[in-house]
């Protein structure tokens, strides 16, 4: 009896979730599988047919100097933006957790960059950092800090740091929100206990704040790491990978194979490469940091 009941219940559950499962399959998993399978075909945008080539696309890709250069830039970009966001989040999270004047207004304002469309941010920063009309260069020049305007997005050396700061600024508020939420859930008694043990401000930070933030910081690093490694839109809007490939990260590189060379097979092989890298990254993360602890609040 119990078994039939359970079986019937199981059937009901399956029937109930089937529609959304099927939908998910059609709109999410099938395209992914199609994209992955493309990596093993010679597929041009101009030919309807496709030809099985096995690992030839992968071999070609791995032999490209540009591929490895783009990979290096992606790593720099990811580390840079994630690091920037963590620092940004930590600084403003800690600041907004203090009893400072105008805190609630500041808390609302800090989320603003996150709400702006990427295209707006891209265009605005191109203006702000413009070597001829940009306000940043104006300020730096008039204050005497520099003699000549800096070509932030156009200079080979300045482009990558400028892109990193712009992207980090856009997504930093996400880190602020998570860190602030976690800070507010720390039992204030822990700080009082630490102080009664003789701990000053710095020790309180090291022994109470940081251990409590550890999982949150790791979570931000993982989520943002994945997003930043895949980041395409803002870079494309501002520099399109230039000047001279200075900001050509893996997604930009793959985009160019797909829509400049129109070679979908090789582009798909590039996607598979990103996929594998992120899979590896996540695996290491879940292996070494207990993910169930991410959401656990220790008091």
């Amino acid at each position: 009896m119990a078994n039939t009941n359970q079986a019937r219940e199981g059937a009901w559950i399956s029937a109930a979730i089937a529609p959304s499962l099927i939908l998910l399959l059609i709109v999410a998993y099938l395209p992914i599988l199609y994209a992955l399978s493309l990596a093993f075909y010679d597929k041009s945008a101009f030919r309807p047919d496709m030809e099985w080539v096995g690992l030839a696309n992968a071999e070609w890709l791995l032999a490209q100097k540009d591929f490895w250069a783009a990979m290096g830039r992606s790593v720099v970009f990811t580390l840079g933006t994630v690091g920037f966001q963590l620092a940004f989040g930590l600084f403003f999270g800690l600041l907004l957790n203090q009893a400072i004047a105008g805190r609630s207004v500041m808390r609302s304002l800090v989320i603003l960059p996150y709400l702006l469309p990427t295209i707006v941010i891209g265009l605005v920063f191109r203006w702000i950092l413009n070597p001829e009309f940009g306000v940043v260069n104006q300020l730096l020049l008039s204050s005497g800090l520099i003699d000549r305007p800096i070509n932030f997005f156009g200079g080979i050396d300045a482009a990558m740091p400028s892109i990193i700061i712009t992207t980090g600024w856009q997504y930093g508020s996400f880190a602020v929100l998570l860190i602030l939420a976690r800070l507010q859930s720390i039992n204030p008694r822990l700080y009082e206990a630490a102080r009664s043990c003789g701990a000053g401000t710095w020790r309180c930070f090291v022994d109470v704040t940081l251990p409590n933030l550890r999982t949150t910081l790791l979570l931000i690093a993982l989520l943002r790491g994945i997003w930043m490694f895949n980041k395409f839109d803002l870079i494309w809007i501002i520099t399109q990978g230039g000047p001279l490939q200075a900001t050509e990260t893996l997604p930009i590189y793959i985009y160019e194979i797909a829509f400049r060379d129109f070679d979908f097979g090789r582009a798909a092989a590039g996607c598979v490469a990103i996929f594998i890298i992120l899979l590896l990254f996540s695996f290491i993360y879940f292996k070494f940091f207990n993910p169930t602890k991410e959401v656990e609040v220790n008091r």
């Binding site: 822990l190 009082e192 630490a194 102080r195 009664s196 022994d207 008091r299």
Partner: peptide
């Protein structure tokens, strides 16, 4: 004088042990 310099020992109602230690 600040708490940390008063040289007291204190036990709290909600115990407040450091959870990560």
């Amino acid at each position: 004088v600040t708490t940390q310099k008063r040289g007291i020992g204190m036990v709290f109602q909600d115990i407040a042990l450091f959870p990560f230690m």
